[in-house]
């Protein structure tokens, strides 16, 4: 176990979205446009790092029988504080990321990392785990949303909060609306997971022979 491997494991090897299949609800809801994917990813990463560090610091204080309510209190308080501080001091950023904050509370990646990692490991490793998992989530969301935005609306990089319509790749009438609705989201996610699995399997086979 090293700081670096904890940092990088979330990117591909133990990617929370493609490998552990955590946080499907916010994944489906926010992977509609690249700007949304990145926004949700950044907000979640921030909360994940904070909650991982706090839970790791308190890991010897919290009795195991009541750990879940304790984690939930810590995470919910942290999310609320981030929400208030952002609204007061960086209102422009809050306007863009603010709508993701209620979704973070129900993001089970945060609770899962508190339970599976931060409660058993030191602060430094938990910090690395939080950053890595957060970036992996951001990466997965960005990839998924790029495909859904392109096929579902025909544009790329649209940022409605800034009034930027994005780059139109093909006409709207050719776009498959189903891709931005939940069924299309699950199909896209399934195909991406399958692709990733077949790539790693091939790699493993090549390593064996």
């Amino acid at each position: 176990m090293s700081f670096r491997s904890e940092l990088t494991k979330g990117l591909v090897r133990e990617n929370p979205t493609f490998r552990i299949l955590l946080g499907m609800c916010p994944t489906m809801a926010t992977s509609l446009a690249i700007s949304n994917g990145i926004g949700m990813g950044i907000a979640a990463t921030f909360v994940l790092v904070g909650s991982n560090v706090i839970v790791s610091m308190l890991r010897n204080v919290i009795p195991s029988r009541i750990r879940i309510p304790c984690y939930i209190v810590v995470i919910a308080s942290f999310v609320t504080m981030v929400d208030l501080i952002m609204a007061a001091f960086v209102p422009k950023l809050h306007e863009v990321l603010g709508i993701f904050i209620p979704l973070i509370v129900v993001n089970c990646i945060i609770l899962a990392r508190a339970e599976a990692f931060a409660s058993k490991n030191g602060v430094l490793y938990s910090l690395a785990d939080g950053i890595g998992m957060g970036l992996g989530f951001t990466l997965a969301l960005t990839g998924l949303s790029a495909i859904r935005e392109l096929l579902g609306t025909g544009t790329l990089l649209a940022v409605p909060d800034f009034g930027f319509p994005g780059f139109r790749i093909f006409d709207r009438s050719l776009a498959a609306v189903m891709v931005i609705l939940p069924p299309g989201g699950f199909i896209t996610l399934g195909l991406l997971i399958g692709l990733l699995n077949s790539l790693t399997r091939r790699k493993k086979k090549a390593a064996q022979t």
Partner: peptide, 18 residues
């Protein structure tokens, strides 16, 4: 008591930030 203490600290911190 432990759960109460954690909630009290969280509530205090939230009140302060608010």
């Amino acid at each position: 008591f432990i759960l109460f203490a954690i909630c009290a600290v969280a509530a205090g911190a939230l009140a302060f930030v608010n």
